[in-house]
Amino acid sequence: MTPARQTPPEPRDWVLLLFLSFVWGGAFMSMAVALEQYGPFTVAAGRIGIGALALLAIVVVTRPKDLAIRDLKSLGFILLLGILNFALPFSLLAWALQQVPSAFAGIAMGSSPIFVLLLAYLFVPDEQIGPRRIAGVILGFVGLLVLILPGATDELGAGGTIAARVACVGAALCYSVGAILIRRAPPVPPMVFTAGMLTAGALVLAPLALLVEGMPEVTAERATWAMLYAGIFPTGLAFLLRVVLIRSAGPVFMSLVAYVVPLWAVLLGVILLGETLGANTYLAAAIILSGVGLTQLRFLRPR
């Protein structure tokens, strides 16, 4: 299949980008609250399953004929992306959030444009990389080392083992690979495509959650409400808009959301959950976002 042509972002693309940054910024906080009662695989599977049910209900009412996907290539993309976009990164984040603050996870996710750039250069023909972008990639990886290395943040309040920190960055890498594959996927309607990915991710992860953590006891506590919020808004709605934005303006433009997501994650985590972050974590965030800025300068520069 010929890859979709890169087009300049429209004003509506910028509006979607800002909305996504706010919704995703609150996702880390909601997952942290859900983990107060549920295990990490249950939180990940519950978030994916709730998002899948919400979108499937909409599709059944509005576009039921689109559910009849018989193309094996499309089904293959849906299954693969259900794992890369949902089952794997959500599991990594939920496991890591047992040890690191939600704000830390949001900052780590800010590294995704670095990975997207490298992957886009390899797999998207109209993406070019020059000295400025190479410098941005190097700077971004320096920020990741500051964020992850043992002892770099322990004494300054971030906490968590090195494995938990690496898991957060691994989730960012999963999203980056998914963004490239979405751009190259067959032209399935976005809502059906997103609902299919969520359903595939839930079917893969739910058995593992039941096997490892057993049947969850659902109560009316805030952890359940947090999981419902995470499933409907940062998962079902936001990932639908993510597919729309990638197909409209491309994966590199969509990755600009990583500028604002860490800011919302820090604000919501510190203000609503009372989390604390050390000076080194903020330094790492500044280095990562500076590197992202160098790689994305053509989108940030006024026309």
Rank of each mutant, 00 (worst) to 15 (best):
P11L: 13
D13P: 01
V15N: 00
L17I: 06
L18C: 10
L18G: 12
L18R: 04
F19R: 00
V23P: 03
M29H: 03
V33F: 03
G39K: 05
R47W: 01
A54H: 05
V59Q: 09
P64F: 09
S74Q: 10
L79C: 04
L81Q: 07
F86M: 11
F90H: 13
S91W: 00
Q98Y: 01
P101I: 12
S102G: 10
F115A: 14
L118I: 15
L119V: 10
Y121H: 15
Y121M: 13
I129H: 06
G130S: 13
P131D: 12
R132D: 10
A135P: 00
G136E: 10
L139F: 02
G143F: 02
L147C: 04
A152Y: 04
A152F: 06
D154F: 00
R165A: 07
C168Q: 11
L173C: 05
C174I: 08
R184T: 09
V192Y: 02
T194A: 15
G196C: 04
G196Y: 01
L203A: 14
V204I: 11
E213L: 00
P216D: 07
V218R: 04
V218H: 04
V218N: 05
W225Q: 13
L228G: 13
G231Y: 02
I232H: 03
F233G: 08
T235W: 02
T235K: 05
L237V: 14
A238F: 00
R242Q: 15
R247L: 06
V252R: 11
V252W: 02
V252P: 06
M254G: 00
V257D: 01
A258W: 03
V266K: 06
V270P: 00
I271N: 06
L272H: 07
A279Q: 11
L283E: 09
A284I: 08
I288P: 02
L289W: 04
G293A: 12
L294I: 10
F299T: 13
L300M: 14
R301V: 12
